[in-house]
């Protein structure tokens, strides 16, 4: 879909959680591409399945979560057919991941140096001394002041922003081709968030990586991503190049999200909230999942979930409005 060759292609991925009350389809047929060397943003509200999708890529799901279908092609090789041992060689080496909570994502009982050098020792068979030397270089690369001292400190001695830098150093130690960042700045203050985002962008260029940023924050997507996938209730509802998407959202949910944000450039007495609530994952509505909250919904929307339809070369939308049989208006209101 995109002009650049993809490094990662997800095709019809399905991940479910099997609980006593039944099957919760957290990711229900997600298809997306990550263009090589670019940043893909996956946006959506809590419970839309974006984090589960991210964990599925590295197969880091915990019980009772299970990938039940689809393909995850990394450089055209299906990761879902790899053995656990082969996956281990990929994790932290070819594909790395950083998480939302820098405060709890580092092991409290080991030093920073120990934790970073572990990556080198397991993936590059490096000796302890060399691995520490490399770790020191990584700390320098991610802009941690007095890295020699930090190397021997424990996580509690570092601030949240510093810990997230350490997480990034750890993730990028083996120069992965793809970095999956799951809400990397959500737990951080705005000024620190800005630092971390700059750092990720900067390192992306330096190390020629591709990045997936999972976030609920549209502002972060606008500032950092080349391409965007919008998720709602386990589905991708819209996928487009960032500029186009923010210029003109096509799916009513995307437009609704944008409209409900307080804006800097316009004064509004009332925000245009999306009505209702996200449905519970065990009681998914019939038809299009967004239909109960959608002001454009017609009969067909309530009966059948539309497919993700390619509109032009670079954009795909999962909405009946863009089908041939649609009688109503094809304009989705957006006050951008």
């Amino acid at each position: 879909m995109s002009s650049v060759e993809p490094i990662l292609q997800i095709k019809d991925l399905r991940t479910s959680f099997f609980i006593d009350r039944g099957e919760v389809k957290a990711v229900d047929g997600v298809t997306l591409d990550v263009p090589k060397g670019k940043t893909l943003g996956v946006v959506g509200e809590s419970g839309c399945g974006k984090s589960v999708m991210a964990l599925s890529i590295l197969q880091l799901l915990e019980e009772p979560g299970k990938i039940v279908g689809g393909e995850i092609l990394f450089n055209n090789v299906n990761l879902l057919q790899k053995s656990e041992k082969e996956m281990r060689d990929i994790r932290g080496n070819n594909i790395s991941m950083i998480f939302q909570e820098p405060m709890t994502s580092l092991n409290p009982v080991y030093t920073i140096g120990e934790q970073i050098s572990e990556s080198y020792r397991v993936h590059q068979n490096m000796g302890k001394k060399d691995a520490y030397q490399k770790s020191l270089e990584m700390l320098r690369l991610v802009g941690i002041p007095s890295p020699e001292k930090r190397l021997h400190q424990y996580p509690y001695e570092l601030s949240g922003g510093m810990r997230q830098r350490v997480m990034i150093a750890m993730a990028l130690a083996c120069r992965p081709d793809l970095l999956v960042a799951d809400e990397p700045t959500t737990a951080l203050d705005v000024t620190i968030q800005a630092q971390i985002l700059e750092l990720i962008k900067d390192l992306q260029t330096k190390l020629h990586m591709s990045v997936i940023i999972i976030t609920h924050d549209l502002g972060i997507v606008a500032e950092t991503c080349d391409r965007v996938a919008v998720m709602y209730c386990g589905n991708i509802v819209e996928q487009a190049d960032a500029e186009e998407l923010f210029e003109r959202p096509r799916h009513p949910y995307t437009a609704g999200l944008f409209n409900s944000l307080p804006r800097h450039d316009q004064e509004k007495e009332e925000l245009e909230a999306i009505l209702g609530y996200v449905p519970s994952p065990i009681e998914m509505p019939q038809g299009c999942r967004f239909s109960p909250r959608c002001s454009y919904a017609e009969e067909i929307c309530r009966q059948q979930n539309p497919d993700l339809k390619t509109l032009d070369n670079t954009r795909a939308v999962r909405c009946w409005i863009y089908s041939d049989g649609w009688k109503g208006s094809k304009e989705v209101a957006y006050h951008g």
Partner: peptide, 22 residues
């Protein structure tokens, strides 16, 4: 169930190392 265990797995460590070391 702690986050740092997930981090250790994401690093590509063997399950045995994850459990006994981390």
């Amino acid at each position: 169930n702690q986050d740092y265990i997930r981090t250790a797995r994401a690093k590509g460590l063997k399950e045995r190392v994850v459990i006994y070391k981390h």
